[in-house]
Amino acid sequence: MTDTTMYQRTRRRVEPLYYVFLIPTLLIFTAFVIIPALIGIFYSLTDYVGFGDWSFLGLSNYAALFSDPRILQSYGFTLGFALVTVVVAQTIALALAVALTRRIRFATTLRTVFVIPMVVSGIVVAYVFNFLFSNSLPAIATAVGFGPLEESILGNPDLAWLSIVIVSAWQTIPGALLVYTAGLTSIPNDLYEASALDGATPWRQFRSITVPLIAGFILINTILGVKGYLGVYDVIVGLTGGGPGTATSSVAMTIFGGFTGGDYAYQMANATVFLIVTALISVAQIVATRGRAVQL
């Protein structure tokens, strides 16, 4: 009895100001994200083109979706791309973060330099790299006589995806780098000193101290990274436009094509499936890494 009263009293003590902070955001989020999403999901069950009359179709858009090779290809490309890019970007970001938190020369300056890509808009970065890949790189390759790169990789269906990995990684490494830097500075230095006295090599220190203690940061970076890469759009538009052929068409690009192509309802079905896929991947990541992080 007293326990319950205590509990209730504690619950009542929640600062009302928190709700004041929460409610506007919640209202805006509901009005501009949740309700439109629900409307979109509803229209995915119809033949709506964006205006005028429509009729209810049930699940036939979904059935058509799963037999459409172009849609399936875009999922294959997007998932593969996200996987490769997250590995590449996280590895480089972690390596850079470790290097930059050591007492090396110009660490502060370098940290600032490395963060620059983050503040430049994706489409601008993509166009700049487009020029490098189309003109500079082939020119250099021709000058030094390196055959494979004399033709731009953007025009090669087997290699074009690499350009998107490179640019996406280049653009997202700084964000991950910042998170890792924060994680690394939170590790007390005496752990390293103690282990050094016990004769641990730097590699052993990295494996047994650094990685377990920043596992939470790795998790958050990977989830945010994968989520971001799954929605890849602007970088592709600026680099390859989804080509050559449809080799680099991402799911987001096929969805967006539906708005201009009169395929609104069909691509809404695609968007709904994509939402579920993205959510499932995030949940799977959280479950797979749950409890792995070590607390000091």
Binding site: R70, G155, P157, G243, G245, T246, G257, G261, D263
Partner: peptide, 16 residues
């Protein structure tokens, strides 16, 4: 050809 058929992209491949 409706824009939901990426004709231009197909041509890109075919030319190559």
């Amino acid at each position: 050809v409706p824009t939901s058929i990426p004709l231009g992209n197909y041509l890109q491949s075919a030319i190559r």
